[in-house]
Structures are given as C-alpha cells and as structure tokens.
Design a protein around this nucleic acid. Sequence first.
RNA 1: UUGGACGUCGGCAAGCGGUAAGCCACCGGGUUUUGAUCCCGGCAUUCGCAGGUUCGAAUCCUGCCGUCCAAGCCA
Length: 568
Amino acid sequence: MSVNSNPENETKKGVDFIRQIINEDIKAGKVPQCVQTRFPPEPNGYLHIGHAKSICLNFGIAEDYEGTCKLRFDDTNPSKEEQEYVDSIVEDVRWLGFNQDEKIYFASDYFDQFYAWAIELIKNGKAYVDSQNAQQIRETRGTPTVTGTDSPFRNRTVEENLELFEKMKNGEFEEGECILRAKIDMAHQNMNMRDPAMYRIRKASHHRTGDKWCIYPMYDFAHGYEDAIEGITHSICTLEFENHRPLYNWFLENVSAPCHPRQVEFARLNLTYTVMSKRRLLELVTEKYVNGWDDPRMPTISGFRRRGYTPSSIRRFAREIGVAKVNSLVDINFLQFIIREELNETADRAMAVLNPLKVVISNYPEGQIEMMEGENNPGDPDAGSREIPFGREIYIEQDDFMEEPPKKFFRLAPGKEVRLKHAYFITCDEVVKDEKGNVIQLNCSYDPATRGGDSPDGRKVKGTLHWVSAEKGKKAEVRLYDNLFTLENMDEMEEGKDYKDYLNPESLVINTSCIVEPSLVDAAPGKSFQFLRQGYFSADLKDHSPEHPVFNRTVALKDSWAKIQKKN
RNA sequence: UUGGACGUCGGCAAGCGGUAAGCCACCGGGUUUUGAUCCCGGCAUUCGCAGGUUCGAAUCCUGCCGUCCAAGCCA
C-alpha cells in the first residue's frame, strides 16, 4: 500500500482527517481489499467548483490508496433529473482528468435490489405503508424539542403492508396517497430517525428506467445500499449529512447487505462573491441572468473551463484549500492566484489593445512595415519567439496616455519618452483633439537607434507600453469578466434582500473594438494568452473564429499602479 | 435550553502533552524591455472565553460563549 503515491495529492505536512480515518481503518483491518470511494452526483444540474473539491477528494484518495473511485449518478428522483445533466457531468469529470474510460454507475440500475430490501424490511416488521397525507405526516413528526407521535397506520400487519406496497408499485395509488416508511422511533432525538420515508409514489418518467417504476426510493434509504452494492469502503459526503449517518447505518444493519461502508463528512466549499446552491445557479440560468450554465461568470466547472481555467489549476486549488470540518469561505482571489501562477508559466505573450488610441509616428517612413521579434514567454526560452509587424501608425491603450500626468505616471505624456515593447522609444510631440476636447490621436517621433527597445547611449525610460500596428492589427471582441456578485459573503445578505439584488452590473463588459496582434486571430478555441500588461485571456470555446475573434479574460494581471492610484 | 458538529493570523490550514508549519492577502526593499514575473525581509508571546490537571496545555478535564446542521413524500 503506497500512501500518497500521487505527488499531486501530497500535502506539505501530514494528511487530512479523512485520510487519517482511512489509515486507522486499514490498520484496524476494517478495509478488506482496497479503498473504494465514489462521487455520487444527482443529475439535476451542472457541476460546480464545490463538486470539483469532492471529485478531487474522492478520486484523489482512490489514487493514493490504489483503490478505485466510481462515478455514480444518484438518480432516484425522476422529477428533477435530465439526461442533459448526466452528459454534462460526465464531460466535466473527464475534463478534470478523472474517470477517463471507466464505467459509469447509476443508482437506477439497483432499483430491483432496493425493492427487494424494502420487502425484507417489511417482512421483519421494520417498515410499513403509511396512508396519511404529507401534511399529516409533517404535523405528527414533532419538532426538535417536541417528540413525534405514531401514525395510526404504524401497526399494520406484515401481510397488509406487503399487499399495500405491492399496490403502490403497481400504480394503484395516486401520488401522495401513501408512502413506505421505516419503523424506527417517533420519539428519537434525531428527527431523521422518526420513521423516515423510504419510497414515495412519482408518476413521472425516469430518464433511464422510463415508466417501469412509479415508486422511487428516497436518498436515505437508497444511498447506503448503493454504496454497499458497489463495495464502497468510505462514503464521503458533506457536513449536512452528518445527522443522517445513524439512518445510513440503520438501513444497512437491518438488511442482508453485502458490506457496511463508513460514512465520513467534510465541509462543503464556499467561495467569496458567488453562490453555490444548485437552486440559485439553475435560476440564474433559466431566468437569463447569465448566458447558460457555462457562462464564464458561473462557478460551474464548465464556466471555469470557458473562462480559461485549466483542469490542473482546479485540481491544485482543491488540494491547497484542504479538507476539514469547519464551514469555510475561501477567497476567490486564491483561485485567481493559482491560475495566474500556472498561466504565467505556460501562456504565450501577445499584445492587444483593449481601448485603442491612435499614435502616428511622424518621422517613420510612410507605408513601411518592419517585423519586430518578441519572445513568447520571457520565463521560458523554449517557448520561442514571434514576429510582430510595426508601422507608422499604431494603437496604444488610452490609459497609457495622460495630458496632465500625476507624479509617478511612467507612461506617455506630452514631451515624455517611453518604450514600445519590442520596438522603439517614442516621444509625444503633439496631442490631437476632437471638437469636444477628447484626445483622439497622438503625434510622436521615434528614435531609430533604439530598435529592439534599447538605447545605445544608455538612455533610460520608465515606461514600456504594449501596442498594435494600425495597418496589420486585427479587430477583436474581448469579454471582460468580474465577480458575479458584489457581496463578499453571500450568506450575509441584508434582511429582506434577495441574492439577485447583489448581482454585479459590471460582471461582464464586452469590448468589440479591440485591436490585437494579427497572429491571435488564428488561435485555437480555448487557447490561453497573456495580453501583455493586462491579464490572461483565452479564445472563446464557442464563439471565437478567425473571422470574428473573441477572447475571454480569465484573470487580470496584478496591478500595483492601480493600487498606488487608489491610495492617492 | 432538543440532538449533532465545529471554533488556531484578514482568508484557507498544519498541529494529536514538549513550548504556534505553510499558502493566499497585506506591508517594506531589490531586479526587470510587462507598474507582471522573480528575489529578499516583515506579518499569531498566542490558539473563542474562564477555570482546572501537569514540570510543561492549542493539544487533557469542567463550565460558559459563538457559529453551523436538523421539523422534504429533495439530494
């Protein structure tokens, strides 16, 4: 047994509490063959970054212990589930780098076995058909401080229960007329143990079993059995199921199950400036606050993918936030730090002007174009270099010029000299304005001796600007993304406010008049670049084409100039 | 006033009776043809609070305080 054989799952010191539990179980001889885990999503929505944490945990543990992790769909409620969701989940898990060719499991494949175990429970006097309606059941369940009361149908005979349950299965009752309940203890301190529902009637078509069934098992009844059937040793779930563990165990103990997995709970992931509940994410999509589940502003795996995040960055994030039982809120900038660090090493550099300001270099020959060489990645010589066309007319960033610059402004201003990256030093001679007084063009002169960006006389400049040739540059659409919400902790909304009241109106800014280096239009969709001095951008997976280039900002570069400005 | 779980730096998080790791953020300084990267330095005499046990406590005990979960025929 090689613990932590996968370097990606190694933590600096020690192992998380779940691996500690597993280690103890192995030492105590409680793990028969190998460690088996599972990732069991319900196909009722797209996976989000919180699921990624669980995926990395479960598959990561399986790798560490040389066991296996099964991707299993917990599809026990046909009214909420769809094939589209199972497809997207499979895609996302694979994209993250797990479950490449392995089998996919479905709880619905075990419906016959669940039914048989339900019969077994009835025969042992451990389950009964309750003919009360939902409201009556609710009212007799009691509260955390008041015990519940027994159903008048609680003492039906085994024969009667068997017959009634058979009729339920055969569709002889309407939805809500009756349910199958476990007979445990209506006075139990844990409300989950007060005769929980096992089967309810749902006359809905299931995405896999069609109309074969009209009764469907409840999570608590089914989940432990799903685990047992698959030989799971450690059933890892989130904290809200802690109260369900006694029930999980009860169902396994009262039936002839093949094994008894151990449920372990950990804290789910929360991120700043976003929401993570499937209900809300679904609402954002259906009510069109975002453009689909894979909108780059969404905290979904597909959203991050489209935003330009890589599988390895998400895996690393999952590993570095750790696993514990404390409810935590992780700063989104931690994720941003990780993708920045990765892209800094892997992304080719390029120049793109987001808000163009025309610069005419008066002393540069008209019609002349020369190719300047620029390295693709200053930190990686193997990344090679590319040729960038330079000419008399170029665009620079509007922000890179100020007519009346404050102190410490290292960029272009009247009479000031700057370096154009990979090209020449230029000096601003004249500012051209329109009738409203807006600066529309700069007339500059260049120093031919500074080709490549260095002055032979040792003259220094403080600022280096990115630029794009006006003649050779290409037009592109750039989508600038920011946090979806304005509140850092979405659990701390003001009284009476809805989460949608905190939607950030500037979460998406589309800029259609950007000018980019010509080579960029041929980028493959999904390819990432660092736009010099601005950030990391990736060619949009859906909308980018050479005819209509579209780039998404994955994350901005750190900007200490912005920080200085803020201070003043 | 029910049961369960959890409280270590602004955010994650190690620590498991021998004297507070690491990462992010933040603050200084250096290098730089990206105000990026990189490099160097700073950043919890204290572990929710109060007692107790011990030569020694974030770690053990007691009591308090705070937060989260639980009254679906959702998962």
